[in-house]
Every structure is written in C-alpha cells, then in structure tokens.
Design a protein around this nucleic acid. Structure first.
Length: 465
RNA sequence: GACCCCAUCGUCUAGUGGUUAGGACACCGCCCUCUCAAGGCGGGAACGGGGGUUCAAGUCCCCCUGGGGUCGCCA
C-alpha cells in the first residue's frame, strides 16, 4: 500500500510549488490505489491562521484534488507529541538544555566570526549538575556525532551526509513545550504510515535530522522524493512578486484547473513527447522516480497555450458554466453554441472569453476611431446603406449560413467583394475592426438587433461628419 | 563561509556509449482568409569549460565555472 501526504503550513495561500508536490503525491497514491492524506502543519501558533488553512482546502477543491480521510491538524496533537518527547527523555535519547537564547546567539556569532558552521555545542548533553534558575529548558535530541547518514532519494538518487557537518543536537521541544517541525513531521509521517514523502527539495537537508528521529523512536524510514523547485521566468526563485503564485489567482485570471494540473505536472516530468495529459493518463504514467533532478522555470506562454488548448476542446456546457464566474451567463442565448464556437479559438483565458462574448452581446457604445477612419469611407457607407435596405426588405434570418448566402448574393449583384462590406459591418456590430466571422456575429446578434446596430452606425457617423 | 543539490535550443523537455541531438511553447516566413485568431507547412535555435576512460561520450569519472538550497526555541 502506498501512502502519500501533502503537509502545508498555513502561513498563507497555496503556492503553485506546493500544488505541484501535492499533485505528484496525489497521482502516486491514486496510481497505486493507495491513500493521499492531508495534514496541516500548524505548530507555529504565532504565524498560522485558520483562514490560511481554509484557503488551502479551497484551492484543493478548485483543482479537484481529493484527499483521503480527515484533515489532520498538528495543533490538535500536542499531547501526543509530548508523549514521544517524554519517551526519548526517559530513554536517555533526549535531554534538557538550559542554554538561554542570548547564550545561543553569542555562540552563533562566535562561530560565524570563525567562519564555522553554526551549531549547538552539546554543552548540556551530559549535564548532571543543578539546573540554572529562571530558565525553562528546551529539549534536544542526541544526534550521532560522527558517521554518515545516507538514504536513497527517489529523485536525486543516493544522498550521503556526514553527521559531523550536518547534525547537532537539535531542539525537539521549545521551552514552552511546543514540539518543533522536524520532530512532529517524523512522528506524523510514521503514525500516518506514510510510505512516500514527496516534497520540495528545500527539505533535502532536513532529511538527515528526520532520520535521526525515526531511528530514535524506532520507526521505519519512508522513501523520500525531493522535487526541485519552480523558478520564475528569469530563473530565480519564484516569489510573491512574480505575480500569480497563489493557486486561486489562476481562477481569477481565467485559467482552468486542468490547465494548471497539466502545466504543473509537465514542469519537471515528462512522458516522451506528449504535452497534453488527461487525469487518467497522468495517473497511469506518473512515477516520482521520473521527476527531473533540476529546477525548472515557470513559463507563462506555455501555460497560456495549454489553457487555450483546453478552451478549444471543452464541451459547451462546461464553458457556459465557467463563464458565469466572470459574470457572463449565456445559458439562455438562442445561438449560444455558435457564440461559444466563434470565440473559443480566440480566447486564451476564460476572462478574455467573457469579455469577447460581452463585446458581441452588447451594442457598441462608441466606435473605434482608427477603424472608422480606415474603413468607413463614403463608398463603404453607401454600400452599407444599400445593404441595410435590402436586408430589411428580405425579412427574418437567423442562421449564420443564411446571412452568408444573403450577403454574398447582395455583393454579387453589386459586383462587389466581401472585403467591401465586411469591415464596415463588423464595426456596426462590435464597434471595431476585430471580431469573429461577421456571419457568425450577425447570427449571434440576431436579425432585429443587426438592423438596429447598422442604423445606429449610419446615424452616428453622419452626426460626426 | 560550511554542507548538500543541480547543469541539452530563450523556456519546458526527449535522450541511459554509436542519433543528421527529437518534440513542445515562444519567435520568424509562407499558405488559408471578411478582420483577429485558430489551423497547415517550413525555418533559425542547445549538449557551460577543461581534463580523463573508451575504437567511440550529451550520455561514465574528476576538476573548474555557473545556478540553487540548507545552516532558527520557522515550517
């Protein structure tokens, strides 16, 4: 049985880097009919918030990642952790350290001055004297002083650390009794029976510490997979300044969850030359040992391309549903399918999609100056007036093909080309010289409204000139 | 600074000793065309440097360089 987990600390929103490791963990569990668990690491009472924890859950919901079982909050497990602290204390594998913060700082400063690695010097490791007054001790674990700690990482391969330059007797419980990260992570992963820890490679150097805890507590060590980070387009560490690092920001910008999933999984992982993956395919083919060792830069162009791809291939109902988020409801429009098809090749995001729909649905309030100047010549206006007259005479039409047939017949009789009317008609419909095919636009706008908009343009332009 | 990780087109990547180094995004050109897209076709574009090992190295080893991470009573 494969058990994976995602264990964010709720200090803010869900970051796309975090989402990527979550996806990897999710996929690996699902592929193996295992379990994917969610744990909130909120032991740092001062920096965590309920809102942040909820935001993470909300983001999970949006992208469609489902976790198994209840969400585990570390803040509710302090008593449990304390029993393990006590166990180590009883077994002599951990001890109380009465060094004050000031002393610790001084020690670090001294080591820094000597250009040494900063580390606790173990002064209370074998302390048997009387405890200094007025100091609440921290609990430190006895870490190996020499030898090596090695493990086989699913992504990086064999990683070896020398105990003497990686480890010191690190704190497992603060002076207020609250246990620390490296300690609780280990206990929870062991108790939750996590078999595969998939996390960012910024945790790589925490791993030997955690192995110390696994060993001290007699737990078996899981497999680790340290996933490289995501870089910004400049190749630097992705930070909040880089814009959309919050997963929910992508919804606001009009990206689909499948786009983000596909983009993120493909960043650092591949399956031959394939670019587009269904969730099924991801589940079938994903293996954490295939994750690339090197960091990869975030590329917005590719994200847009992927989003465009999903928009182009998405069922009507789904698009109509998604559009509601952007305040556009075309569910009752008679030509909703023509409308969707007219826009889907032209919008890279749902946000763009919504605004393009709006542009066709709403009668133009003004006309683009450059377009007017360029296309609404005297001749063009004359043609448009003729067209209007014939259009009114002809009577009701609705399909795009009907408008096309009608218009072509009109042009042929006049000895004109489509060029001679397309742009002026387009300006009448949407106010500028860019839109989907005019015939589709005419059909979407509808016969009566088409007439109205042409009349508006004719009147409007006359007033101006 | 110490320790660790990493290194193929601008970017994401394929590649597991013998390849004209492949694909995708982006870019450029052509085609299609009522505008804009979409689509089709084509193009330029990479193995960081230096040593080895080998008949043969992008692929294995070492060094350098460059990038990144970690060194908290944060997670």
């Amino acid at each position: 049985m494969i058990v994976t987990r995602f264990a964010p600390s709720p200090t803010g929103y869900l970051h796309i880097g975090g989402l990527r490791t979550a996806i990897y963990s999710y996929l690996w569990a699902r592929k193996n009919n295992g379990k994917f668990l969610l744990r909130i690491e909120d032991t740092d009472l001062a920096r965590n918030s309920k809102e942040a924890a909820d935001a993470i859950v909300e983001a999970f919901k949006w992208v469609g990642l489902s976790h198994d079982g209840e969400i585990l909050y570390q803040s509710e497990r302090f008593d449990l952790y304390k029993t393990y602290v006590q166990k180590l204390l009883d077994e002599g594998k951990a001890y109380k350290c009465y060094m004050s913060k000031e002393e610790l700082d001084a020690l670090r400063a001294e080591q820094m001055a000597k250009k040494e690695r900063t580390r606790y010097d173990g002064r209370y490791r074998d302390f048997t004297g009387t405890a200094p007054l007025g100091i609440e001790p921290v609990i430190r674990i006895k870490a190996p002083i020499d030898g090596q700690i090695s493990f086989v990482d699913g992504v990086k391969g064999e990683v070896v650390f020398n105990a003497k330059d990686m480890l010191d007797d690190f704190i497992i419980a603060r002076s207020d009794g609250v246990p620390t990260y490296n300690f609780v992570v280990t206990i929870d992963d062991a108790l939750m029976e996590v078999t595969d820890v998939i996390r960012g490679d910024d945790h790589l150097s925490n791993t030997p510490k955690q192995i110390v805890v696994y060993n001290a507590l007699g737990f078996s060590v899981p497999r680790f997979h340290h996933v490289p980070m995501i870089l910004n387009p400049e190749g630097k560490k992705l930070s909040k300044r880089d814009g959309a690092t919050d997963v929910m920001e992508y919804q606001k910008e009009g990206y689909l969850p499948e786009t983000l999933l596909n983009f993120l999984i493909r960043l650092g992982w591949s399956h031959g030359d394939q670019e587009i993956f269904s969730l099924q395919e991801m589940q079938e083919w994903f293996d954490p040992t295939d994750i690339n060792k090197s960091a990869s830069a975030y590329n917005k162009e590719k994200l847009l391309w992927l989003n465009a791809h999903y928009i182009k291939t998405m069922p009507y109902e789904r698009i109509i549903e998604e559009l509601k988020y952007f305040g556009v409801d075309i569910g009752l429009h008679v030509r909703k399918e023509v409308l969707v098809d007219a826009i889907r090749d032209r919008a890279k995001t749902l946000k763009e999609f919504a605004s393009q729909v709006q542009q066709i649905l709403d009668a133009p309030q003004s006309y683009d100056e450059k377009a007017v100047e360029k296309f609404l010549t005297k001749e063009a206006m004359a043609v448009l007036e003729d067209y209007l007259a014939v259009l009114i005479a002809k009577g009701m039409m609705s399909e795009a093909s009907e408008f096309e047939e009608f218009t072509k017949a009109f042009l042929e009789e006049k000895g004109l080309k489509l060029k001679d009317i397309a742009q002026s008609l387009r300006i009448a419909m949407v106010g500028n010289s860019v839109s989907p095919s005019v015939f589709e636009v005419l059909s979407i706008v509808g016969y009566n409204e088409v007439i109205k908009r042409i009349q508006n343009l004719i009147q409007g332009v006359r007033v101006e000139s």
